[in-house]
Design a binder for these strands. Structure first.
Lengths: 193, 193, 193, 193
DNA sequence: ACATAACCGAGACGGTACGTCCGGTCTTGAA
DNA sequence: TTCAAGACCGGACGTACCGTCTCGGTTATGT
């Protein structure tokens, strides 16, 4: 899964894009297999058949790499079959996100980057940018569709709702409680009235 | 602030209770002054004029100490002058909590323990216990008073609301955004209808 | 050769003298087996069942360790059976030194430390101290005995002779030519008249 | 001093002879300015507006470049006004050599190549060749003139004397003590009787 | 009165990750 | 075919922190 035996080597004076991919893949695998506690730059380098300087040429530090890992594979499996019911759709989407976090290592990566941000100001800023107003776009689109449809009042406070949704997701992620999806529906119901 | 100059020394075959306090104080100060990134067991020991074994005799590891720090000074300044308006009271209480987190190092400690919990299962369990159903008791009392008063419907989903409040607080804490209290009121309004 | 399996561990708040010995032994072995090019602090640590911080607690850097290695086992096998002939005795002594340098890793260590001194001012100063006036004491004693005996004139310039002897030894050491002892006698003859 | 701003670029299928000179000049300057510790192939390339492959196309490795540096500018300023007194002439010549080593970076280069030779067999062989019998030619000529003149006995052991002179020079060079010329005269006196 | 036992501060220890540095090789695209 | 530029691997460097361990000493308790 993480082995193209011969090291890639340089392809000239520009960075080898293969390396980026190999490193990211190795990092993803490592995070998935061993978790954040065993996530080591040296081990990532070893698995990617890369060298530590190559890693640090591309990412300032461990936190930056994990952040990229976080960002790299979002917005994929989060497409849901919308049914025109805001509450149901939003619940389904959150459940899909939780499922995604459980299956891909993205959930673990996000936990890691949030942890890292508690002692690294640069990482903190990046995390802040992740939750800018209107930010979980998928959710915003659902809500806006609901408003357009008239299911939600025209003056619905979308940004506040979105922020509460993010907060709700993070809380469950950070406490390792994204396995049980039953809390989702009541929360969504409360937010939408 | 962290100096009772003469080292305490032993008081015999039982543990010196002064040490606990001195260590906690040193830990609190260190966290307040330098933040979680510079929070080191060795430095805590040095400041407390204690030794590392003394620390580890009382706390299993760094996470346990930080957790204790978190728990030690809660539920103090969170008394607010209730006015009988659930939304206003709840907002005031959340604002008071944020203020408390800003002023005391408790906020930093909570951030630290959440970070620690991302790679330490024992810490994770402790964090989970912190947010058990009905858990921010102060808030629960306010909501229950509102239900009793009739301001909130009898079937109001208190636990879900509480969880959303916790999530909302954590999100702002973990992203270093507890300085601006304006998001509080809209969020509370959304939760209470 | 370098294995007392159980790691030594700390003996309290003072440094474990066993560690010093174990590290020095490991360093000596490594230098003898693999040479200066493969002499690595990590490898020394590994062989000594010590940790890198333990090495660096005792020696500022690689150069300091090698220097100690140099100094640790001098003036041992250099006792020769004096015959009362200054030239013969001095030649024998130099030959004994070359033999010592060949057999013990001290020769390699000295080569290493001289090399290191070319890019490390602290090491340079240490090397300078090694060759302070009157410094190869064994040789000085032989010459002084010769003066006392009347074999050498009373105004014999001992320090200059000593310095030339050191220079001669170094030249052959640094060029890997301490195996052939034939150049010794003519040189000594020239120095003593 | 090390800047011909426009990079030279290729002149086609043959090697650009300008590069050799530019690289040597850059290397010389770097060695003179920052010393051996900061002497880096990358830095030489940067200063010479050359690339590392260009360096390695012409020199096998760092040691080879430094060696060339050593050899490139010898036997220039070492002409002295001979006075027909072997001791005086030899002393003057050694002093001139030391001055040369101090002023040109050749002294530093020689220190560097000797250091390099301690962990590189090829460099070691080159260094050995530098001190082949009869090798510091300037000094040999002076001594041979002295013999011819009758100042030195016909059976004077020139090679041994030369070797001791080289050794003496190296010792002072390697210990950074070529600034004080007072030790020269006594040493020469001892070697010539 | 004295021995015991648990405490204490100090700090060294093994282990291991971090992020940096340099030597020598490789590839591109231009000349 | 050469060139400049610069990315690449490999691996050593020296630092930091965690949690453990031992020392030498102090103090309350048990005899």
């Amino acid at each position: 899964m993480s082995s193209d035996k011969p090291p890639r080597g340089s392809i000239g004076a520009i960075r080898n894009p293969e390396s980026d991919a190999a490193i990211m893949a190795a990092a993803r695998d490592l995070l998935a297999e061993k978790g954040y506690g065993a996530f080591t730059m040296s081990e990532v380098a070893r698995r990617a058949h890369a060298s530590k300087p190559t890693l640090y040429r591309r990412w300032d530090n461990k936190a930056a790499l994990i952040f990229d890992l976080c960002m790299s594979d979002r917005t994929d499996r989060l497409r849901i079959a919308e049914q025109g019911n805001v509450a149901a759709d939003l619940s389904a989407q959150i459940a899909a996100l939780w499922r995604f976090w459980r299956e891909a290592p993205t959930g673990t990566a996000l936990r890691a980057i949030i942890a890292e941000a508690q002692s690294d100001d640069v990482a903190l800023q990046r995390v802040r940018d992740m939750i800018a107003p209107g930010m979980p776009e998928h959710a915003r689109l659902l809500i806006e569709a609901g408003i357009a449809r008239g299911d939600l009042p025209a003056d619905f406070d979308t940004n506040t709702a979105l922020r509460l949704i993010v907060a709700f997701n993070w809380l469950h992620l950070l406490t390792g409680q994204i396995g049980d999806e039953t809390p989702i529906a009541p929360a969504v119901r409360m937010l939408l009235r």
